[in-house]
Structure formats: structure tokens, C-alpha cells
């Protein structure tokens, strides 16, 4: 970055993000809503992500060491109410799909020594594999633990011939020593945005979906453009009374389920979860 560029954009570098109305003039701000009441823990989103984003299957042993490369994982929590002591403890299983929260004030971004991760104009937390030197500082600083490091050169073994033909050509096959993370299926968004720009419009709601949202059988994952006030995701954020630029959400009444994970850390995530509701007496 040149000095003149830095001086010219000084204000935007010094502004605290996010702020109210940050994306009012922007065409895109990608966001998500995940309804935990609808999630049945089937792992279809994880499988779709593996297929779409060239994720290697690392095997049982490395999975046990915590080296799995799943950009979206289903976290299980047990024991709602007195379910654990009952005859059917599975009754109390809860599922939570955990993926990169695309934080507006992402803890991973400022700590990268080489600037391999930065914030894109459409509100995504990007990772550039070529620039990454593998310091793993970003992963250490991520409170959600959704950054994954390539401890091995997986392309050698993960796709033996002819399985390499299944690889998605629009996504880089990462090599040993780089960090990777959920991109909100940037390759799909980019193709859609380029097409829309040629046609002189912005993307319509639901025109492009992430692989996980597309695969979800119960439509628990809603993906869309938060900058477009009429999009489904923007209406859900509004109905759930979640504001992107606030770190604690005031609800006007009981029973509004929307929340963001670890909001008290001031990360301002782009994913809203809808709390699970169960009638334990039933």
C-alpha cells in the first residue's frame, strides 16, 4: 500500500468497526441465520462443504488429534433438563452448526503478521492462502475455533487417482502449512456477483446460496444479503431484534430467540442463531 493511499484512506482505517449504517450504501453484506430448532444434526451441511470446498478427509487418527478440516462442524451438547438421568439420554441432544462467524471486528485479522487475512468490502473475513506463512496466530485468537491448519500435505493422499477429478476447479487445493476457513462459498458469490454486474443489477435474494444452506434438509440455514433490507435474512435479523453493530441486544419481549454466539467478546458476528425451544414435560 502506497503512502498516498494510506493518507487518503486514513479515516477509514481509524474508524471503529462496525458502526451503525456501515453497509447502508454498500451493495452487499453477507450474513446468515441458523435456526437451532430446525437443525436435526444430520451433517448434510458438513458433507456439502467437503464436496464444494475441496476439504480433505483426514482419517480417524488425525481427527482424534483435532486436525480435522471441517469448515462447518456440528457440535453436540447433551443433557437438557433431567434428560441425562432418564432412560433416553439422547432425548436431550442438542446440535449447533459451528462455522466461521465472519465477525465484523474479527480477532483473527489484526494478529496476522503478513496480512493474509483481511476484511472484504462485502463484510467477509478473507484468507489468502498464498500470503499465509502458517504462524497459526489467527487460530489461537479465534474464540470460535473455526480456523483449520494444514498440518500435512493432504492433496498427496486425500484424493488418490481418479478422485482428484472430483475437486472443485473454482477453489484452491491448499497445501501444507497454510490456514484455511469458511469463505461463505466465495466462489459461488463471486460468480453470481460478476454475472449480476454484467447485467447491471445486484444479486436477487436467494439467487446464490452457500453449499451448507443449499444442502440443509430442514432449511435451518438461511443465507442472504443483509445490506438489502428486503431480503429474507435481513427481515429475520430485524424480527429477532439483532443489530449488527451492537454487542448486546435488547429484546422488546420474552420469547425472541435470536442471539449471536460469544457476543460479549465484541466480535460482532455475521451469524444469528435462533435458540432451541423444547417442551421437556412432553
Amino acid at each position: 500500500m502506497s503512502l498516498s493511499n494510506l493518507i487518503q484512506n486514513w479515516n477509514s482505517f481509524r474508524t471503529r468497526r462496525p458502526y451503525e449504517g456501515q453497509y447502508d450504501d454498500a451493495p452487499y453484506k453477507w450474513a446468515m441465520v441458523i435456526d437451532l430448532d430446525a437443525c436435526i444434526g444430520c451433517n448434510a451441511c458438513t458433507v456439502a462443504c467437503y464436496a464444494e470446498n475441496n476439504l480433505p478427509v483426514v482419517g480417524k487418527e488425525r481427527f482424534g488429534k483435532g486436525q480435522a478440516m471441517h469448515w462447518i462442524r456440528i457440535e453436540r451438547y447433551w443433557g437438557e433438563g433431567d434428560a441425562m438421568t432418564s432412560e433416553f439420554p439422547d432425548h436431550g441432544a442438542q446440535y449447533l452448526p459451528m462455522l466461521c462467524q465472519q465477525c465484523e471486528a474479527a480477532p483473527c485479522e489484526p494478529v496476522c503478521p503478513v496480512g493474509a487475512t483481511h476484511h472484504s468490502p462485502d463484510g467477509l473475513n478473507t484468507q489468502v492462502y498464498n500470503r499465509c506463512v502458517g504462524s497459526r496466530y489467527c487460530s489461537a485468537n479465534c474464540p470460535y475455533k473455526v480456523r483449520y491448519f494444514n498440518w500435512w500435505n493432504y492433496p498427496d493422499r486425500a484424493w488418490p487417482n481418479p478422485l482428484e477429478l472430483q475437486l472443485n476447479p473454482d477453489v484452491t487445493v491448499r497445501s501444507k502449512g497454510v490456514m484455511e476457513k469458511c469463505t461463505f462459498c466465495m466462489q459461488r458469490l463471486r460468480a453470481g456477483m460478476d454475472k449480476a454486474k454484467t447485467e447491471g443489477r445486484i444479486l436477487a435474494d436467494g439467487e446464490v446460496l452457500t453449499a451448507c444452506a443449499q444442502a440443509c434438509p430442514t432449511s435451518a440455514i438461511t443465507f442472504g444479503n443483509l445490506a438489502d433490507k428486503k431480503s429474507k435474512v435481513a427481515r429475520m435479523w430485524k424480527n429477532q431484534q439483532v443489530d449488527l453493530a451492537k454487542d448486546s441486544q435488547e429484546k422488546s419481549e420474552e420469547g425472541i430467540r435470536g442471539y449471536r454466539i460469544l457476543e460479549e467478546l465484541n466480535t460482532y458476528p455475521s451469524i444469528v442463531y435462533l435458540e432451541r425451544v423444547r417442551n421437556l414435560e412432553a
Partner: peptide, 10 residues
Amino acid sequence: GPNDCWLCHK
């Protein structure tokens, strides 16, 4: 022209 990393890096 746009200068977002993810415009060209995939």
C-alpha cells in the same frame, strides 16, 4: 478497479 483479495484469489 476493485482491489479486494478475494476478487482474484480463490
